[in-house]
C-alpha cells in the first residue's frame, strides 16, 4: 500500500469478504429424509458444527446462504426445493448430502425420485454416503469454505 499500487486494496477486501463469508455460513433447516438426522447430529453436542461458524440453522430461506439438501428429493418435492433455492439471497451455496441426492441412490430404479438434485439446482459440494457420517458432512462444509475462499483442494 505504501507504493500506492492500486489493486492490492481491492483484492484484500475481496479476501476479507470471502474469509468472513466462509466462516459464517448459515444453513437452511431443510431436512428431507434419513440424512436429516445426521444433519441434526452435526448440530448436536458431539460433532458441533459451530466450530466452523455454521451453527445458526435458519428456518427461513431468506436468512440463509447454504442449503444442505439432506435426503431423497422426490419429484413432488423438487419444485419446492427449486423455489426455496430461488428465495435464498446471493451468494448461495448448495451441498448435496447423501447418495440419494447425488444420483438417486437405492431408489434409482423407481418412478418418483429425482436422479440427482443437480438436475434442479446447481450443487457446490457433493458428500457421498448413505447416510454420510457427521464427519463427512463436516468435511463437506470445510471443502465448501475452501471453495469460497478460492483455495484449491488438492
Amino acid at each position: 500500500m505504501k507504493t500506492g499500487e492500486t489493486g492490492i486494496l481491492t483484492t484484500t477486501i475481496d479476501k476479507a469478504l470471502e474469509w468472513g463469508r466462509s466462516n459464517s455460513l448459515w444453513p437452511l433447516t431443510f431436512g428431507l429424509a434419513c440424512c436429516a438426522i445426521e444433519m441434526m447430529a452435526v448440530q448436536g453436542s458431539h460433532f458441533d458444527i459451530s466450530r466452523f461458524g455454521s451453527e445458526i440453522f435458519r428456518n427461513s430461506p431468506r436468512q440463509s446462504d447454504l442449503m444442505i439438501v439432506s435426503g431423497t428429493v422426490t419429484k413432488k418435492m423438487a419444485p419446492r426445493l427449486k423455489r426455496l433455492y430461488d428465495e435464498m439471497p446471493y451468494p448461495k451455496y448448495v451441498i448435496a448430502m447423501g447418495v440419494c441426492v447425488i444420483q438417486g441412490g437405492p431408489y434409482v430404479k423407481g418412478y418418483s425420485v429425482v436422479l440427482g438434485v443437480d438436475r434442479v439446482v446447481p450443487v457446490d459440494v457433493f458428500v457421498p454416503g448413505c447416510p454420510p457420517t457427521p464427519d463427512a458432512l463436516t468435511y463437506g462444509i470445510m471443502t465448501l469454505q475452501k471453495k469460497i475462499r478460492g483455495e484449491t483442494d488438492r
Binding site: K75, K76, A78, P79, R80, K82, R83, K109, G110, Y111, R119, V120
Partner: peptide, 28 residues
C-alpha cells in the same frame, strides 16, 4: 403393467398445487 420407462415429472402451479406432466419444462 405399469411402465417405468414412461417417465413423468411433477411441477407446481401458482397456487402451490402439484400436477404431473410428461414434459419437464422449466426448472428441471
Amino acid at each position: 403393467d405399469y411402465d417405468l420407462n414412461n417417465v413423468q415429472y411433477i411441477n407446481m402451479d401458482e397456487y402451490g398445487e402439484d400436477y404431473a406432466t410428461f414434459d419437464p419444462g422449466d426448472g428441471w
